[in-house]
Design a protein around this nucleic acid. Structure first.
Length: 349
DNA sequence: AATAATATCAACCGCCGGGTC
DNA sequence: TGACCCGGCGGTTGATATTAT
């Protein structure tokens, strides 16, 4: 028989000098006077003593059993976010910071999921750290913290005066990249990135030569890769050919190194660099590399679209600063560049 | 030293999905 | 089948700490 929280909470009385909530909020404790605000050391002690002795059981019954004038939700939150013995305190390490950025790129604001990749950290802690630190760093580097894509010059100007973004745009524009056109599908269905994140997008593999293999995300709804809402082509990435999941590096490639990692059991994340030209003009602005069945492989022309060499603008900037630009999910089991975690995300340029 | 502005983070609020009746 | 409860989650708030003026 289920015991209702309201019944359990009935009869509780507020103490003197505390801030109590009456007749509002806390739907589970609507008939109870509950204290709000910061927890006192005495309350913490009561809660810890109760949970270490009896376990929390039903959270709604914890306040009464522990002698607290809080609602069950508040007790649960206090325990999970602050009193739990396995919590890691202190500032986030660089490794943790990278993990947050990497996983956030895949999952978005799913803080609880992200926190699972950081032992001892809570979703609340991760969320606060993101909002107060990481978000600002990304913006300072000209990246949209929501999509992890480049901010447009306008957005960059609006959100931040830092000029790194425009510098990076310039650099990006002469990066040769390989793409593929999906000429067989007219499917423009827009897919939720979060949904895509849990799908096993099939990848088509094309070997261009002995050392370079390209992989195509065949799902035509690859909006997620470059942040566009719907595209009919998908970004290609270059990988060194190898036969296992062992770490490898790209050789003899004009591309900056791509980064990949394994996320959970069923998916893998990675990033690549995208071209700077308008998608609508894609076929005209790419040099055809090869044709393989229905797929046409293109390489971006370095001189296209008015993109000029602007290396000087990047003196002193490490390309690693921008390695986490674009990302995509690929299913596990393919071989690719997997040394992402070896790369430092250098926040300072 | 005083005040204002900004950053940090603990806690709350409201919603949602799953389970039970 | 619908109402209710609970745990969990993400967004937001507000108190406090820190930094700038």
């Amino acid at each position: 028989m289920m015991t209702t929280c309201a019944n359990e909470c009935a009869g509780e009385e507020g103490g003197i000098g505390l801030v109590f909530l009456e007749d509002m909020g806390h739907h589970c404790c609507s008939k109870q006077k509950v204290k709000r605000g910061l927890w006192s050391p005495e309350e913490d002690e009561k809660l810890v003593r109760h949970i270490t002795t009896h376990g929390h059981g039903c959270w709604s019954s914890v306040p009464k059993l522990a002698g607290l004038q809080r609602c069950g939700k508040s007790c649960r939150l206090r325990w999970i976010n602050y009193l739990r013995p396995d919590l890691k305190r202190g500032t986030f390490t660089e490794q943790e910071e990278r993990t947050i950025v990497d996983v956030h790129r895949i999952l978005g604001n799913r803080w609880a999921q992200i926190a699972k990749h950081l032992p001892g950290r809570t979703d609340n802690e991760v969320k606060n750290f993101w909002n107060s630190v990481i978000k600002k760093k990304l913006i300072a580097q000209g990246l949209d913290p929501n999509t992890h894509n480049l901010l447009s010059p306008h957005q960059t100007k609006t959100k931040n005066n830092n000029t790194n973004a425009s510098k990076f745009n310039s650099r990006h524009q002469h990066t040769g990249s390989v793409f593929t056109m999906d000429t067989s599908s007219g499917n423009k269905e827009i897919i939720d990135p979060k949904t895509l994140a849990i799908q096993n997008s099939y990848i088509n593999q094309t070997t261009l030569n002995e050392s370079i293999t390209t992989f195509e995300f065949q799902n035509p709804n690859l909006a997620w890769i470059d942040g566009a809402q719907s595209t009919q082509y998908s970004t290609m990435m270059e990988f060194s050919s190898c036969s296992s999941m062992e770490s490898t590096s790209i050789s003899n490639s004009s591309l900056p190194p791509s980064r990949f990692g394994i996320l959970g059991e069923n998916c893998m994340w990675g990033n690549a660099y995208e071209p700077c030209f308008d998608r609508a003009d894609l076929p005209q602005q790419l040099e055809k590399v090869s044709t393989d069945g229905q797929e046409q492989i293109y390489r971006a022309n370095n001189e296209l679209n008015g993109c000029q060499q602007t290396d000087n603008a990047f003196d002193g900037c490490n390309f690693n600063d921008f390695e986490f630009m674009d990302s995509a999910l690929v299913p596990p089991g393919i071989c690719c560049h997997v040394n992402s975690m070896d790369h430092e995300l250098a926040w300072d340029c």
